[in-house]
Design a protein around this nucleic acid. Structure first.
Lengths: 148, 148
DNA sequence: CTTCTTTAGTTCGATGTCTTACTATTTAGT
DNA sequence: ACTAAATAGTAAGACATCGAACTAAAGAAG
């Protein structure tokens, strides 16, 4: 885009391209077709604890419940999670990691950490400096309803 | 994600969320179902000139040719572009904007500029400062090519 | 307790994107 | 010139995502 763009416009443009490149880079590196959203859910369950409901996960990732249903069905089909009924609320389910799911997450984390570490060294990326401003932008987009 | 994440990992995570929020924000604001990739192509043709080939557009957006074929077919069906055979290369086509396509792009630009401008004012976004480092990150990720 | 509303999750159809495979045309190598 | 490799575009199949419509269950109002 040109220098005449409002800076925020150009920024979001750049962000879109980076997201696409990063997602492709991750997914092409997986030997078994693990998708980024699959990894994201596994990672979330390891870090923040499993036993969450699908709805909680959908809200955490800002995805619709329908999308999370799809992701969880695929993770379950791969044997990476179990879905159990919630004893206290018959409408709800609870998502639990299997040992295979934990192991697959560790594998993906290890690879990704190595890849990103190498990338950050080859190029002079100042990720620390960008993190705070991007979080501010995310927050702004997140709670600022659209006008009109 | 937690503070134990490598900064680049957390950064890409944040970027993924922002991309999703920004795309949804744009698309929900369109009255006619115009998608972000459609707008991106119209905008590109206005700014850099039409008469490009589908392959050139695919490379410009780092998408596969198949994806660009799909986008162009939808833009043509909406009457926003015309596809003409290339006189010098019988394999190729050339993409031209229609008056309707130009008008629709102007409409979307006006809305988006206003929306982003308002957003940038309400929140304290330093888009200028982030642009250069993000471009460096994009360039670093970009070394991986081989597309259709 | 009965009814209305809200919440949890699924299903369905549409769209964007990718990979793989294909056709047609151009270019390069010999 | 002939043939092989590269390039332009398309088609088919897979998957992620969304919105709308649906079912089931819990909560609120009376």
């Amino acid at each position: 885009m040109s220098t005449q763009d409002p800076a925020l416009f150009a920024l979001l443009n750049e962000i879109g391209i980076i997201e696409q490149l990063a997602r492709n880079r991750f997914e092409r590196a997986q030997p078994d077709g693990l998708r980024l959203p699959h990894f994201a859910v596994l990672n979330h369950l390891v870090r923040l604890g499993d036993g969450k409901t699908p709805g909680q996960l959908a809200r955490a990732f800002q995805l619709t419940k329908a999308t999370m249903t799809n992701t969880l069905q695929r993770l379950e089909a791969r044997g990476f999670i179990r879905l159990e009924p919630d004893a206290e609320d018959a409408r709800a389910k609870r998502v639990f990691l299997t040992p295979e799911g934990r192991a697959r997450r560790e594998e993906a984390v290890a690879f990704t950490a190595a890849d990103l570490s190498a990338l950050a060294q080859r190029a002079d990326i100042h990720a620390d400096a960008m993190l705070a401003p991007l979080r501010a932008l995310r927050t702004a987009l997140d709670r600022d309803p659209r006008r009109g």
